[in-house]
Design a binder for these strands. Structure first.
Lengths: 213, 213
DNA sequence: ATGCCATAGTACCGTACGGTACGGTTCGCA
DNA sequence: TGCGAACCGTACCGTACGGTACTATGGCAT
């Protein structure tokens, strides 16, 4: 594996070593929160030197940004193939999307990064917040947008503003669960309800935007 | 004003002086985030001594908890009088509730306290998170619950699980706006849409749970 | 007047963190 | 084999914060 290969398959301009370091940093963040994410701690956990951290990422904020970008680069939302949709398959796709959304939001890495970005949102013009928004929400929003658009093209959904319809779907699926998990409510207690919750939310969404009613 | 009076009209066991100090602490938090909320900074801003802070609130976490409890004690949700509801007044009440909800969530003190609690959620068993949840959400949830129950008693709403119906209303109203504001998106850009948003959400909610359709 | 209590202001201490500098080691390459 | 780059481990520095101690001051009751 030459240098070009190393740089290529990361999705970002990162070497394997740097990705391994970011992985350890994420682990630290998940386990102990932002307070545990010290430069010395990352260096110790990843068996690298602080000097290398500063050389690679500039400063602590650069490390945080790199962690967000790295995590986002790992979560690739596979685009739905534009197959022919009928009522049942649209419903199934929507339920699958809803479950995935809940699973992603309840993931410990996602929760930790959201907590990190929110905690830093007051200062620094919320740079991390915008990064997280851009890298995370845009991706999953596109998948939903494509799905909704396909449903409309197939005559199964009726809406004028796709953004509004997506907002309704998101709200029905997530409600205040995300905030509650961010505030510390154990996700473990909730995960068993994800399926039921996703199905109920999709049923309500189809009542609002489906053409069958 | 005697000592008993001082203690009485706060809603918490706080003297006027202590409430004034907490007010300054909230101001500091709103302006500069958690990083700006140092014991020395609070003492300087409130013209009090650090020793008094520790005497009154124990330690820094006690100060944070007191800030949350104090702020919650200020926001009293006036319970709706159980008047006779018709379709129009129920809709108006729901829209008013939705607007209030959005206004509260977009308030800078609310955002700052939520950011604070979320930032500390990883460690300490999320004590602040539970406190915020208990003091804030329960209040507004009760108001919504009473309203929904009144609507059902009047034959205007149909639902089996009030919690589920409330979750749908909340999701339709808030969607991901709260998270976006927590991540730093300027609330100023959104506030002008609150009315339209509240009305649309209530219309969708009535489509789902109203008895007219 | 006098003693008591609460509190402001300040000085102080220990610690922990961000960031830098330096010696020693490994590895690729000529 | 020798050289240089990258990097690890550690030591170091300045700063800032949480928390404590001490003094001074003003009000209040006896």
């Amino acid at each position: 594996m030459n240098a070009a290969m190393k740089e290529a398959n990361a999705g970002e301009g990162l070497t394997e070593r740097q990705r391994a370091v970011l992985e350890q940093a994420l682990r630290l963040l998940v386990d102990g929160g932002e307070k545990a994410l010290t430069t010395a701690g990352v260096a110790r956990a990843a068996n690298c030197s602080k000097e290398s951290l500063y050389k690679w990422f500039g400063d602590r904020d650069g490390l945080l940004s790199a962690m967000i970008a790295f995590q986002a680069s790992k979560v690739r939302t596979l685009d739905v193939t534009a197959e022919t949709l009928d009522g049942a398959s649209l419903g199934a796709h929507l339920v699958a999307f809803a479950k995935d959304l809940l699973e992603v939001l309840a993931g410990d890495v996602s929760l930790a990064l959201n907590r990190l970005a929110i905690g830093q949102a007051s200062r620094e013009g919320s740079k991390l917040g915008h990064l997280l928004q851009e890298r995370g929400r845009r991706q999953i929003g596109r998948r939903a947008g494509a799905l909704l658009e396909a449903g409309r093209k197939a005559g199964l959904l009726a809406f004028e503003d796709a953004e509004e319809a997506y907002g309704a779907l998101y709200g029905l699926v997530v409600s205040d669960w995300h905030l509650r998990m961010l505030l510390g409510e154990a996700p473990g207690d909730m995960k068993k309800d994800f399926s039921r919750r996703a199905e109920g939310a999709v049923a309500a969404f189809l009542t609002l935007y489906g053409t069958k009613g």
